[in-house]
Simulated scan of single mutants.
Amino acid sequence: MNEIIEFEVLSTYHIWLKFQDGYEKVVNIRPYIGKGFTQELLETENFSKVNIEPGGGLAWYNGYDICPNFLREMPAEKKDVA
């Protein structure tokens, strides 16, 4: 099971992730938000209101969450995203 142990919001829709096994990557969440109740996450302030949920994935204040296994499989972005 993959679990996120650290994260950092880097820039608009990009988050650096560190998994429990030490693996690190940057992911772009933009393709997964913007419709329905995730539309409010397009606002930078709202997007930044993210945390690690008990299952080791990412969760936002509005109930939207992304499974850690899915995050692990997402394409990695360049580390220098700013």
Rank of each mutant, 00 (worst) to 15 (best):
M1E: 00
I4A: 01
I5R: 06
I5W: 08
F7V: 00
F7M: 00
E8V: 07
E8C: 04
L10V: 01
L10S: 01
L10N: 01
S11W: 03
T12S: 12
T12L: 12
Y13F: 15
Y13H: 13
H14R: 10
L17C: 04
Q20W: 07
D21R: 13
D21V: 11
D21L: 08
Y23F: 15
E24L: 03
K25E: 01
K25D: 01
K25V: 02
V26D: 03
V27D: 07
V27K: 07
N28R: 14
I29Y: 12
R30W: 07
R30N: 05
R30C: 01
P31K: 15
P31R: 14
P31I: 12
P31G: 09
P31N: 11
P31W: 12
Y32F: 15
Y32G: 06
Y32P: 07
K35P: 00
K35I: 15
K35C: 11
K35S: 15
F37G: 06
T38W: 08
T38I: 09
T38P: 02
T38G: 04
Q39W: 06
Q39I: 09
Q39M: 08
E40F: 04
E40L: 07
L41F: 07
L42V: 09
L42N: 06
E43F: 07
T44R: 05
N46I: 03
N46S: 05
N46Y: 03
N46F: 05
N46P: 02
F47V: 08
F47R: 08
S48G: 11
S48D: 13
V50S: 09
V50T: 09
N51I: 10
I52E: 07
I52R: 11
I52Q: 08
I52A: 10
I52D: 07
E53I: 12
P54V: 10
P54A: 13
P54R: 13
G55S: 13
G55L: 13
G55R: 13
G56Y: 09
G56C: 06
G57A: 10
G57S: 11
L58I: 11
L58C: 11
L58G: 11
A59Q: 14
A59R: 13
W60V: 05
N62M: 06
N62Y: 14
N62K: 06
G63D: 14
G63I: 14
Y64N: 10
Y64H: 13
D65K: 11
D65L: 14
D65P: 13
D65F: 14
D65A: 12
I66Q: 09
C67V: 04
P68R: 03
N69E: 06
N69G: 05
N69F: 00
N69C: 03
N69K: 08
F70N: 12
L71A: 04
R72G: 09
R72F: 12
R72N: 10
R72D: 03
R72T: 08
M74K: 11
M74A: 10
P75N: 12
P75E: 13
P75M: 03
P75L: 07
A76D: 10
A76R: 07
A76S: 15
E77K: 08
E77P: 07
K78N: 08
D80T: 02
D80C: 00
V81I: 05
A82D: 01
